[in-house]
Design a protein around this nucleic acid. Sequence first.
RNA 1: UGGGGUGUCGCCAAGCGGUAAGGCCCCGGGUUUUGAUCCCGGUAUGCGUAGGUUCGAAUCCUGCCACCCCAGCCA
Length: 565
Amino acid sequence: MTVKEQNEASRPSHFIRNIIADDREKNVHQGRVHTRFPPEPNGFLHIGHAKSICLNFSMAEEFGGKCNLRFDDTNPAKEEQAYIDAIKADIEWLGFRWEEPVHYASDYFDQLHDWAVYLIGQGKAYVCHLSPDEAREYRGTLTEAGKDSPYRNRSVEENLRLFEQMKNGELAEGSCVLRAKIDMSSPNINLRDPIMYRIRHVSHHQTGNKWKIYPTYDYTHGQSDAIEGITHSICTLEFEDHRPLYEWYLDNLPIENKPRQYEFARLNLNYTVTSKRKLKQLVDEGHVNGWDDPRMPTISGMRRRGVSPAALRHFCEMIGVARSESIVDVGMLEHAIRDDLDKNAPRAMCVLNPLKVVITNYPQDQIEQLKAPNHPNKPEMGERQLPFAREIYIDVDDFREEANKKYKRLVLGKEVRLRNAYVIRADEVIRNAEGEIDEIRCTYDPETLGQNPLDGRKVKGVIHWVAAHRCLDVEVRLYDRLFLAEHPDAKKDVDFLTHINPDSLRVLQGCKAESSLANAHPEQGFQFEREGYFCLDRFDATEDKPVFNRTISLRDSWSKLDSEN
RNA sequence: UGGGGUGUCGCCAAGCGGUAAGGCCCCGGGUUUUGAUCCCGGUAUGCGUAGGUUCGAAUCCUGCCACCCCAGCCA
């Protein structure tokens, strides 16, 4: 198999790729491929945007083309510079490089204005003084045609004069708009004389106080694409009805390069909310700690949680690109995350709920330095030292006074393997005044380091542990799904907030981590063996107080078994 | 009851007239000092539905059904 074939095999065809490949073969756009990712800076990017980013950037990359980053900043009231900065950081973190410089739709406000004057001159645009309510009435309904605005036949001169006044801030906000003169009886409502400009006496994060009028998305997007030489303008399905309008502007303006718009189905994930409005609500109302809270499906949230760019990109490839609306199982995202971490995360041990174990036949002051591989299947990842001593911690869940045969951990009177160390036997349970278990007294078999018991005894279980006096005291944040309902926003009459998982974050203090973890870097993924994947929080961890976020647990076929009994 | 779309395994998704890819999930079995990973094997006589064309249809034609989007001076 050639490299190209392998590539094609691992990247299944999808309709956008097919269209582009086809266009290149037919030399459409002189064989150029130029895409763009056009976010509005009114919130943080989420997993759905990741799909679009991967699509746009990878199509350009694959076909030797370019991909622009363009902020779709036509509504200054909702936009902020802070979002622009965050969006740029997210895209870079994902590993994509846009074609410099960064573009803004607002870069084209002058050109757009001149084109509006041009359309007025052609008798194809007019200033309309209908109030919003009146305009709605005149627009008609889905089944009834609209009516022409009484202002539709103003003279070119009057329109020019009024538009100039709009531009100069001489007219009040909301008093009138500039509309394209298309067809009030079109079955496509977008063609019923759509608004091109509205008056907004607000300053803009890029253009300051220069403008009193701002163009709408429809009047801006296609032309911006054309100006930038975009060939394939990829957007989501809900813009499909806008395509005739997109093309109307390109056809009625003196524009050479005509980009084509293609629509794909946006990403939906179960147990997740991906609507900027709702995500903003979660942030604004304090249900989470900011846009980059590790529970958020935002790119920065997932980053902070410990998800790698590679995992996200792989996920986007797995789910494909199509035109049918679908809801992807979060299990697929989780699989992509585990798959990446399993291959790349060094192993370590950390006891989440410590239970002291005293090994009575181990010398009082002795400390051995055991060796442990950093990855069981990748010797090239090296090994580390693991101090072993008379007192260790194991997890509360890994000991039972009595249990059936299915329980493969430490049971009173039975043996278990300490991961990377010896086999121990539980001899005695020590209780405090309240009758709670305080510690377990064990004995170890010195002949079992790196080998099975010499007499052929079978020890089936393996548990993790940490040396009591050589470990780190750490905080661990256990994250779980933010929503309990599979489709949190499915019902319009049920507030999605009612489905919030009250246990989406559990903070554990006093967890005991092996000492080598003192060298962990923020965002570096580790597998805490038998527990899951964790990383140091990039904002809250300090030298004195390490804070680890659980990215995701290990797959667990035991808890299912256990609960069946 | 207008217009635009979509319907292939529990969830994604290839397929474009030659006899249903792949991934996730699930179920068996094997390896394993992580109940992880990994490895083998299994899972649609069926492609929304009813007809038609054809030697042959998920692919072409016709009717029907279901679901999604559109009546912001949001994008």
